[in-house]
């Protein structure tokens, strides 16, 4: 497994990944800073309101979208020139290959989350946000947002393995992230069944006036249930697939 992970990280196109991460961080930090200033009539400036401004687009749009993009990116070079045949010659349990990809995917998604938080902190320092840093919220939403994306990551990986075309799987990811504006309006017991809504439910602090209606126990139950289910489905799908 260790070896597979090393092979996997050797194949990853880090330049694209780093560019994506920087893009997410910059856009959302700048947007947070801008709104902290332009919306100060409605939201009194503070570290918390800066966080709410920054996390809004990140949790609703960027994070689930990145999950899709990076999953497709990790499979793109396998589809292109028969890479799957190299990977499948691995003399070990076949589902290990699936999990190696999954671990790299969620590893990158953890970095996305971390760098986003650093960007937020830098933006707050630059904007001289008043008050104290809401460390508790940061820890819960940062780690929780990552946990919340795990089911989507499993599902996205299955889609990316199945859909050979990078463009098609990208379009698919955009296609379900956009309606997130509507879906996250539902109560979390309904909306969270759609895996791309979960990061928003977790990451948007309940202090925000437009915070989604969240019931944490059912939300986490759904996360663990669907996460386990998708992983199991993915493993099964990967093992039984005909590699033509």
């Amino acid at each position: 497994m260790n070896m597979l992970l090393r092979a996997e990280t050797m194949k990853t196109q880090w330049r694209v990944v780093i560019l994506l991460i920087l893009l997410d961080t910059l856009i959302n930090a700048l947007m947070g800073m801008e709104q902290l200033d332009s919306l100060k009539e409605f939201f009194p400036p503070s570290w918390m309101s800066l966080y709410i401004h920054s996390v809004n687009l990140h949790a609703m749009f960027f994070y689930p979208l990145y999950c899709g993009i990076i999953a497709s990116l990790l499979c793109m070079y396998e589809h292109r020139d028969g890479g799957w045949k190299i990977a499948l010659a691995f003399p070990g349990p076949r589902y290990h290959i699936f999990y190696a990809k999954y671990l790299v995917l969620i590893g990158i998604l953890a970095v996305v989350q971390l760098v986003f938080m650093l960007g937020y902190l830098a933006a707050g320092k630059l904007a001289h946000a008043p008050g104290s840093i809401p460390w508790g919220t940061l820890a819960y939403t940062g780690f929780g947002g990552w946990l919340g994306i795990l089911p989507l990551a499993a599902l996205q990986l299955i889609v990316s393995i199945k859909v050979r075309n990078f463009g098609a799987s990208l379009a698919l990811a955009i296609g379900y992230v956009v309606p997130n504006i509507v879906f996250t309006g539902f109560h979390s017991t309904i909306g969270a069944w759609l895996p791309f809504t979960i990061p928003y439910y977790v990451m948007m602090p309940q202090e925000a006036i437009y915070a989604p209606r969240v019931e944490p126990y059912s939300l986490w139950a759904i996360v663990f249930f669907t996460g386990g289910l998708y992983l199991w489905l993915g493993q099964r799908f990967f093992e039984r697939r005909d590699w033509l």
Binding site: M10, K11, G82, I86, P91
Partner: peptide
């Protein structure tokens, strides 16, 4: 699979990596 080498249809490779890295991935696995 440990004892079998194969080249099926068109050659398989990771185009964005060097030939050396491609071989390294196989040796790793």
């Amino acid at each position: 699979l440990k004892d079998v080498g194969s080249l099926v249809e068109s050659p398989s490779y990771y185009g964005h990596l060097s030939g050396y890295t491609n071989l390294k991935i196989v040796t790793l696995m």
